[in-house]
Nucleic acid binder design. Sequence first.
RNA 1: GCGAGAGUGGCGGAAUUGGUAGACGCACUGGAUUUAGGUUCCAGCGCCGUAAGGCGUGGGGGUUCGAGUCCCUUCUCUCGCACCA
Length: 916
Amino acid sequence: MDPTYQPKAIEARAQAHWANTGAYQVTENAVDRHGKPRPKFYACSMLPYPSGKLHMGHVRNYTINDVMLRYLRMNGYNVLMPMGWDAFGMPAENAAIANNVPPAKWTRANINDMKSQMQPLGLAFDWSREIATCDPSYYKWNQWLFLKMLEKGIAYRKTQVVNWDPVDQTVLANEQVIDGKGWRSGVAVEKREIPGYYLAITAYAEELLEGVKTKLTGWPNQVRTMQENWIGKSVGVRFAFPHNVKDANGNLVQDGKLFVFTTRADTIMGVTFCAVAPEHPLATLAAAANPALHTFIEECKKGGVAEADMATMEKKGMSTGQFVTHPLTNEQIPVWVGNYVLMTYGDGAVMGVPAHDERDFAFAKKYSLVVKAVIAPPSWPLNRIECMEGHSNDGTREQTFPIVYVSGETDTKSMNLSWWSWRDSHSQLGQCINSGAMNGMGYEAAIDYLAAKLKPSGGEKKIQYRLRDWGISRQRYWGTPIPIINCDTCGPVPVPYADLPVILPEDLVPDGSGNPLKKDEGFLNCVCPKCGKPAQRETDTMDTFVDSSWYFMRYCSPNSNMSMVDARNDYWMPMDQYIGGIEHAVLHLLYARFWTKVMKDFGLIKFDEPFTNLFTQGMLSKECFYRQDEAGKKRWYYPNEIEVTYDDKGRPVGAISKEDGNPVILGGMEKMSKSKNKVVEPKDIIEKFGADTARAYVMFAGPPDQSAAWSDSGAEGVFRFLRRFYTFGLAQHEVVKNHPAKIEWNQLSRELKAVRHTLHSILKQATHDYQRLQYNTVVSAAMKMLNALEAVKTTADAHAVAVTREGISILIRMLYPVAPHITFQLWEELGFKATLGEIMDSPWPKVDEAALVQEEIQIMVQVNGKLRGQISVRSDASKETIEALALADEGVAKHTDGKAIKKVIVVPGKLINVVV
RNA sequence: GCGAGAGUGGCGGAAUUGGUAGACGCACUGGAUUUAGGUUCCAGCGCCGUAAGGCGUGGGGGUUCGAGUCCCUUCUCUCGCACCA
């Protein structure tokens, strides 16, 4: 065997062995050495988009997954780790436009490319379960479940407001609208209403929320909170303001009621106006007779529908001239159109309470509307609360507002609170004042009171969600065809189940203007299943989030032709560990949960939460260098173009370009991105150091759930360690083979006992860290162990040989999940395979608790909490002995001299603290 | 603005959960081997100080015999959501 570490040869050999033995193919009936069933564990990484380029983020993700699999497998688990491709989506269409290649061809080539880049990493994927979501055998079941949902009313059709590019004749996603213009055409985007299919995820809102709160204890809190906020449940009252608004023909609007939703029923007596969304029917009605209002509304509708854009907009409004009746006071309340009112939330109308809502106040201030205070602090005596007009000057004009105070109070400073300091009533709820029968009521009581009081006119206590139904129609070619046939006579008709899948033609090349399916006669033309007349297929395709909502179940039932999933799914699911990026915290993970609940309701599966544990890995960043020109434009440099200079303490003081010798700015750590020349290519690292180094370094760089920095010299350090490990291992060849048969560990010398103590405490720590997925400290544990073993002189005696042999057998197995190839080689080379079997299924080393017990221990001595000395005592020494020894220590004596000892605290086995 | 998380050497980061702060690695410094460079090996390496010693986990306060860890307060950064009534 080559005595120098040659990762390429070692890795090729190990990988060939695993491939030839089908080592990664798992089944549902795996048993252990004793014939007992192994417990299952399903660990899965989020499926990648086949961009064609494998980057270090993928490497980190899959290595975490792989390390977990290998560790658990040694611990007796039957572990599944599959891989697949999120193969539909826009990048393929963009590439098609750019290169004139059909998306299918581009996508499939990329899959092969990426697969070949993954291969040298030695990842234990069970490729027999591979999925590409663009395969008809997969998306057939998207269509099938969609039809089922349609039957049950979970899927439905309605019109939606979208960003429409009038030149490209296509719908744009929010992120494709830049400054209100289409990203390709550069033409102003229109808001347009077009029909599409929706999934009623809101029907599952409560269940999804309940699951987040009570079931998903294995998820990071951050993600749980994000989902909770996304669902956005609020409890309040929905009620109506009756009105006598007339339509264009002068007729009263039928059933004249303006419905609003409020969580602050306690402020209803403070209503001084109502505001409706620009798209609201009342606004449309008023605009018909009011050109100025019409213009204003059109202005509001312009621009993207992105909520982020709306948020930064100034609050603007215009009166409709209409009035509604306050349901409690019968006062006439003016109706305004407000650009800050969302048509998509509640009824698209709000009651305006400027005294107790910041937005309403800003609006009222701008348009000089009345402000009326109706809430006071709960501790105030109700019968003495009074209100007066106050004034403020905002620089442009005078504004009046109410001041609430307690009459007869001498300390006016503390009690004379204005409405403004009381505005944040969400966190500090108060009591109703100036509210007639509601006076003294709190927030909760007011909701119940109002709901009951307004019941005759349609008022009710209501739970409102922020979550909206999931629109899945995309006016795109490269996606799952929606299995609908549009018939002039019958309307939209579902494709019969027997005709599934509706196959997407794969030879079309989009040109950027519209959906090429619309021009493909072969796809388009068909016969209506209902009336038999000629009809046309729906050309919209499904959102790609549909594809990723259940792929992890299909892995469990590969090649299931007759059903979406089969019994094998019940064995593996729910998934024990899901691993992926935080960027999917809301959408993907929420849709997948929803999809799972639907499948459960259809009786296809037995569980209702798909992912028991979720792990979100952090980003990889890299040190970067740049130079800035006069215009402020940055030029980024590759690390190998730069020479960094240091002071004599190793602090970087500057950097120069090798090219021209002039200084370059050290840019600190930034997320790896192509635009900043900070991309590290996995294949370059593997080429240079081998896969084991790439894997071990990516694990070593930092805690897997936090962002970590890539450093070339750091990777080199890991390579040095592996090389040392290999050289050391091979050098033990004879030693390990000729080990003594039986050793009584308690007969060892003091020094060797200390070595075993070190080995087993490191093993204990590493085992603990494997369990909590802290792989960075696992690697450092391996480094420590090698350091400890190298310090042992092995040639001397049989005991030293035995300890070394034990140590190396532990070290090889401990490092195996992280660096499987080098350990595979050494395991065999040193003859462990013969006694303990293949490393992959060899037993995880056991911590020898006896080795952790020490006869003599070190005790720290503190005086007043400061470390002053160290003593060595027998582990069974009494408290008194320790105390006496500690006080006799000269370092301690120096600090206790001449002072009275108040107290002595002894922490057994650790330290003693003398208080003087 | 709301929500979540994080601040520890020149750097990445440890600290078995209230008990030796800085493990392991990188960078740097000195030495040995070799010498053209690199590799490898040994030693040093938080800050101030010649030393004794003192100071140190973003700042301030508190609880405790003892705080990186717990509580209060404040600052900074990252991420997410963002007119949700």
